[in-house]
Structure formats: C-alpha cells, structure tokens
Simulated assay, not measured.
Amino acid sequence: MLNILSILVGLTSLIFVIPGIIPLLGALNWLAIPITLVGAVIGMLSSKTAGRNLNLLLLVVAIVRLSLGGGLL
C-alpha cells in the first residue's frame, strides 16, 4: 500500500518536473523537490522499491536541472 502511495506522490511530482525542464520554468523544480522527498520517504517505508526509485529519479532530475540553471531558472 505504501508503494502505491509513493508512486502516486511521484506522479504528482512529475507534473512539476516535466514543465520544469523547459527554460524559464525551472523554478517549478523548487516545488517538486519537497514532494519527491516525501514520496521517497514513503517509498523507503515500503517493502517494494518501485515508488522509491521513481521518486529518487525525479529528485535527481530536478536537482540537476536546478544546478544547470543556476538554481533560479
């Protein structure tokens, strides 16, 4: 059950991460990072790893995009 909840949180975060890749919309990643952290913690409490891995992947994408844009864009 926690794995499904973690996947749902990850899909919610995906709504912010995908547009955040577009130039000048990178600030959306600041909203995505806390959401993915919550999803990763929920995924770590689960016995399965799919939700955790999804959230960690989205977290890495959001952090890399923020670092490429200088943290703002």
Results as ranks from 00 to 15, higher is better:
Ile15Lys: 08
Lys48Asp: 14
Leu28Ala: 09
Thr49Ile: 13
Ser47Gln: 10
Gly71Tyr: 11
Ile4Thr: 15
Ile7Ala: 03
Leu31Cys: 04
Arg52Val: 00
Gly51Pro: 02
Val17Ser: 06
Val64Lys: 12
Asn29Glu: 05
Leu25Val: 08
Pro23Phe: 11
Leu59Trp: 07
Val61Tyr: 11
Ala50Cys: 06
Pro34Trp: 07
Gly20Leu: 06
Gly26Thr: 06
Met44Thr: 08
Leu24Val: 15
Pro23Gly: 12
Leu45Arg: 15
Gly10Tyr: 04
Val41Arg: 12
Ile4Asp: 12
Trp30Leu: 12
Pro19Trp: 12
Val41Glu: 07
Ile33Leu: 12
Thr12Gly: 15
Leu2Tyr: 10
Ala62Ser: 15
Leu68Trp: 11
Asn29Ser: 01
Pro34Tyr: 05
Asn55Lys: 11
Gly10Leu: 09
Met1Arg: 14
Ala40Phe: 08
Leu68Gly: 04
Pro34Cys: 03
Leu28His: 04
Ile15Gln: 09
Asn55Gln: 07
Asn53Ala: 10
Val38Ile: 15
Ala50Gly: 05
Ile15Met: 15
Phe16Ala: 09
Val64Arg: 06
Ala40Met: 11
Leu66Lys: 08
Leu11Glu: 07
Val38Met: 13
Ile22Met: 10
Ser13Cys: 09
Ile22Thr: 03
Gly69Glu: 08
Arg65Gln: 10
Ser13Ala: 11
Ala62Gln: 01
Leu66Tyr: 01
Leu31Ile: 15
Met1Gln: 13
Leu31Arg: 00
Pro23Ala: 13
Leu66Ala: 00
Leu8Lys: 13
Ile7Pro: 01
Ile22Asn: 11
Met44Ala: 15
Val9Glu: 03
Thr12Ser: 14
Ile22Glu: 08
Leu58Val: 01
Asn55Met: 08
Asn55Pro: 02
Ser46Gln: 09
Pro23Ile: 03
Leu59Phe: 15
Gly70Lys: 13
Met44Cys: 10
Ala32Gly: 01
Val17Lys: 01
Leu2Asn: 05
